[in-house]
C-alpha cells in the first residue's frame, strides 16, 4: 500500500506498524515525534498502531534553533 511520510509517497508491505515503519525508513526512534493524519501518536503506542492505505505521516525531530 501507499502512504505519505513528510509529503513523500512511499510503498510499504502490509500490515505495518509505526514502529516497523521507522525501521524500514532507517530512522532512529529517539528524539523524534510522529503524527498520523495530524493526530499525534505517543511513543508507547507506536508498536500497536497499524497504518492504513493513504495515511499521512508526519515525522519530526529536533534541530538547531534559537
Amino acid at each position: 500500500m501507499q502512504i505519505m511520510i513528510n509529503n513523500q509517497l512511499i510503498e510499504v508491505d502490509t500490515p505495518i506498524t509505526l514502529q516497523q515503519l521507522l525501521k524500514i525508513i532507517n530512522q532512529p526512534d529517539k528524539g523524534v515525534a510522529l503524527a498520523v493524519n495530524r493526530q499525534i501518536i505517543s511513543r508507547n503506542q507506536w508498536q500497536a498502531h497499524t497504518l492504513l492505505e493513504g495515511d499521512q505521516i508526519t515525522l519530526i525531530k529536533a534541530t538547531a534553533g534559537g
Partner: peptide, 27 residues
C-alpha cells in the same frame, strides 16, 4: 533552545541532540 523540523528522509545526519544531552544540559 531547540527548534523542530520535518525529517528529510533522503538526507538527515545532523545529530545535535546527543552532545547536549550527554553534557547534562536541559532542552
Amino acid at each position: 533552545t531547540m527548534a523542530l523540523k520535518r525529517v528529510d528522509l533522503n538526507n538527515d545526519q545532523d545529530d545535535i541532540l546527543d552532545p547536549l544531552l550527554s553534557a547534562g544540559i536541559n532542552l
